[in-house]
Design a protein around this nucleic acid. Structure first.
Length: 763
DNA sequence: ATACATACC
DNA sequence: TACTGGTATGTAT
């Protein structure tokens, strides 16, 4: 249907600049004419020149790839094919079709909000953004080829009547929180991807929903008068036609289940118990609440749900049945570009190999496995099989924070410096809001030729204030200026990013007393680090000693984990790769009802239960689907890097992870949440794990726990100072260790209020 | 650890 | 006149 995946080979056309008709609302327009206008508007500009350059780089990459391809023999391919085939078997065995994942996406969100609030815009082509850049366009404008990420001035050429409305983020955020309230009713753990988009796991909701009375599935049309006070105000009975006007498509979807009732002038609808009805209900509620429409995709995993939500856009939904056949058929004709994670460049690389749809992807997997990185081809393979993450991962902690600004050419050093400071101040403010401190500062520069450079420096201590960040950033900037001199830096953009955040336990103020104790009389003096000349010494004086203590605590933890991991590796010899998969095969194949006989089951007393090869914990279930889900969860959480926008790749990294040693995996961190979802939810024993010694505590008593943590913290100090100290409860020891990584635990949540001081201990 | 490229919204 | 800004990840060095 979306034929246009291979653009007509226009010589000299910079394909990366051409119209992207990948999005909804872009069908059947005059691509050539539009591309011509786009090119004419861009030609000769610095931007265009840079795009040409980048295009050439991609072309070189393709040439290189094609050369590599030439070197491949039948032998190679055969071997690769065998490996792919094995992989397919493994992946197939673990295919999970039991979950119901929904991806919801508001239609032309920003534009729709602006249209809602300004009826004059309703029947005009409009877009949100500026003459320089558009964030969204309405469907009317899309007919002209006007789309998101297009500069307004080009859009104007495509559509001279285009109305451009400036962005109004506060408004979008407000609407976003309204729709999120609704999302939460269907999945309290939904994952927002942006203001207008989210993934939801409907599985549990649907289970409950089956036994719900009609009343819980009944939803009313909004009150008659709309916020703008239309002419219908005094005619409440005309509500229904009004509303249907807003969403003519809504009711085309599943007319059979459509029930509209009138009760004393108030119209309502009773929704059914099926997935489709539940999702239709959610979309109905969104529309009633916000006057905006959403589209949704329903599928057994995130990758597919995302594609499905686009299928009947706008104001529609699409369900992909949870059968292997349906999934394979769906994926077969799917253009690779539709898959989240495969962008312009990957598409071009694949196209060069004759691959445009996902079925081609499957057919050429052996080749792909030889030409692409492991991560890449594993991803491709999963996509070709219609696989994706069947669970929605917990939202990860942020990994970086940045701010950047584009401006008219700037070359003067003083001007650049003051801008740099401003950026640092803004960034420091944002950091403060989240109470974060990071160790890596990155300066981003874009010159007037659109060439981007980043320069980073990692400190041994975390920073957060504007002065601290600026101290680093200005040096990076100076270095760049020096490198470029005598030519000036002619900038069009500058940005500052901070990353390598310290974990919550490392940035708390508690250490003051420890620091004071460790460095008597020196605590208020500057520490010895002088890698970077500092603007303001006094503000950071506490950082380093505190850091050094925690660095030791951390080193100790890692040492403990490594020791435990290697001991585990001994008792379960091949846990690294095949066995880990085999354990699952075993569970998944043979007699599903007889898991007690399976090698993956544990030998602990009570009959049912399987032991997870990743976290080594017992999973109290006889249900293999549940067990597999647990392992998926473990894998996803033990993976140190977790892309949040490639979430559908969750499974994609599994094979790679399987090749990590147990030690690497254990160092990869598993959160306390995992520990409790595996353990705590089912067992009555304590779920508190000391973030320092990593031991699960015997007691659930927070006071005792706090005391223990205090002691553990102080122990390091005491040890350093004199003799080893043992805490009264569960003394820290070197033998066993839980997999819990304190970095993700936020232990101070529990510790808060308890006074962690050396003085306290000595009292 | 650093730099750059790709991707997503 | 005019081609964003924020975050994450992958790849190469």
């Amino acid at each position: 249907m979306e034929n246009g995946s291979i653009p007509p080979k226009t010589e000299g056309l910079v394909s990366r600049m051409a119209l992207n008709d990948n999005k909804a609302g872009m069908e059947g327009l005059d691509r050539d004419k539009i591309n011509k206008i786009i090119m004419e508007s861009s030609k000769g500009s610095k931007f265009y020149e840079n795009e040409v350059k980048r295009e050439q780089q991609v072309n070189q990459r393709i040439d290189k790839m094609m050369l590599q391809k030439e070197q491949i023999t039948e032998q190679h391919l055969k071997k690769a094919q065998a490996q792919v085939a094995r992989m397919v078997v493994e992946l197939e065995k673990r295919r999970d079709l039991t979950r119901v994942i929904v991806h919801v996406d508001m239609d032309a969100f920003y534009a729709a909000v602006e249209m809602r609030d300004c009826p004059e815009l309703k029947d005009k082509p409009m877009a949100v953004g500026s003459m320089s850049m558009l964030s969204t366009s309405n469907y009317h404008a899309r007919k002209y080829g006007v789309r998101a990420a297009m500069p307004g001035f080009i859009a104007k050429k495509l559509c001279p009547n285009l109305v451009i409305v400036p962005t109004n983020f506060d408004k979008y955020r407000a609407v976003s929180s309204e729709i999120r309230e609704i999302f939460a009713d269907y999945d309290p753990n939904f994952m927002p991807m942006s203001l207008d988009e989210a993934y939801l796991d409907f599985t549990e909701h649907l289970e409950k929903r089956q036994s719900w009375p009609d009343s819980l599935r009944t939803h009313h049309y909004r009150a008659s008068s709309n916020p703008k006070g239309d002419e219908n105000n005094e005619l409440p009975q005309e509500t229904t036609p009004d509303v249907t006007d807003l969403s003519p498509v809504l009711f085309d979807d599943s007319p059979s289940s459509f029930l509209c009732c009138e009760d004393a002038g108030s119209a309502f609808e009773i929704f059914g118990t099926s997935v489709e009805e539940a999702v239709r209900e959610m979309r109905f509620r969104i529309e009633q609440k916000t006057l905006l429409t959403a589209s949704a995709g329903i599928a057994p995993n995130m990758m597919l749900a995302k594609v499905c939500s686009d299928k009947n856009k706008p104001n529609g939904q699409y369900r992909l049945p949870s059968t292997r056949e349906a999934v394979m058929e769906f994926v077969c004709n799917l253009p690779v570009r539709k898959v989240s994670g495969i962008g312009k460049v990957s598409e071009k690389l694949l196209n060069a190999l004759g691959i445009s749809s996902c079925s081609h992807l499957g057919q050429k997997m052996a080749l792909l496995s030889l030409l692409f990185s492991e991560t890449a081809w594993h991803h491709f393979l999963q996509v070709s099989l219609g696989l994706g993450s069947a669970f929605i991962p917990r939202h990860e902690e942020r990994k970086s924070m940045s701010t950047e600004r584009t401006f008219k050419e700037m070359s003067a050093a003083e001007e650049q410096l003051s801008l740099c400071r401003e950026l640092c101040e803004d960034l420091a403010n944002d950091l403060k809001k989240e109470g974060l401190k990071g160790k890596t500062v990155t300066l981003k520069l874009k010159n007037v030729n659109f060439e981007v450079k980043t320069r980073a420096l990692t400190l041994s201590y975390p920073v957060a204030t504007a002065d601290e960040i600026f101290a680093v950033a200005k040096d990076l900037l100076k270095t760049e200026r020096d490198n470029e001199s005598p030519q000036p830096l002619r900038l069009r953009l500058m940005g500052v990013r901070i990353s390598a955040f310290v974990s919550s336990d490392e940035k708390q103020p508690l250490q003051k007393s420890i620091v004071g104790f460790l460095n008597p009389g020196k605590a208020e003096l500057g520490p010895s680090h002088k890698e970077i000349p500092r603007e303001s010494e006094e503000k950071t004086t506490l950082e380093e000693p505190q850091q050094s203590f925690f660095q030791k605590a951390r080193a100790k933890r890692l040492q403990l984990q490594a020791a435990a991991a290697s001991s585990r590796q001994e008792d379960s010899s091949g846990i690294s790769s095949p066995l880990f998969l085999d354990a699952r095969n075993c569970a998944a194949s043979d007699e599903p009802d007889n898991d007690g006989a399976c090698g993956a089951s544990t030998s602990t007393s009570d009959g049912i239960g399987l032991s997870c090869p990743v976290c080594f914990r017992r999973v109290e279930t006889a249900d293999l689907a549940v067990f597999n889900r647990h392992i998926d969860q473990c894998l996803s959480e033990s993976s140190a890097q977790k892309p949040s926008q490639h979430l559908e790749e969750g499974d994609g990294r599994e094979a790679k992870r399987a090749e990590l040693s147990a030690e690497e995996r254990s160092l990869g961190s598993t959160s306390a949440e995992t520990a409790s979802s595996v353990n705590g939810n089912h067992s009555k024993s304590s779920s508190l794990v000391c973030p320092i010694c990593l031991l699960t505590q015997d007691s659930d008593d927070l006071i005792l726990f706090n005391r223990h943590v205090d002691l553990c913290l102080n122990q390091g100090v005491l040890h350093k100072l004199q003799s080893e100290t043992r805490s009264p409860i569960n003394p820290p020891s070197l033998d066993r260790c839980s997999k819990t990584n304190p970095e993700n635990v936020a232990p101070r949540k529990f510790v808060k209020g308890s006074c962690i001081t050396i003085d306290h201990f000595f009292r």
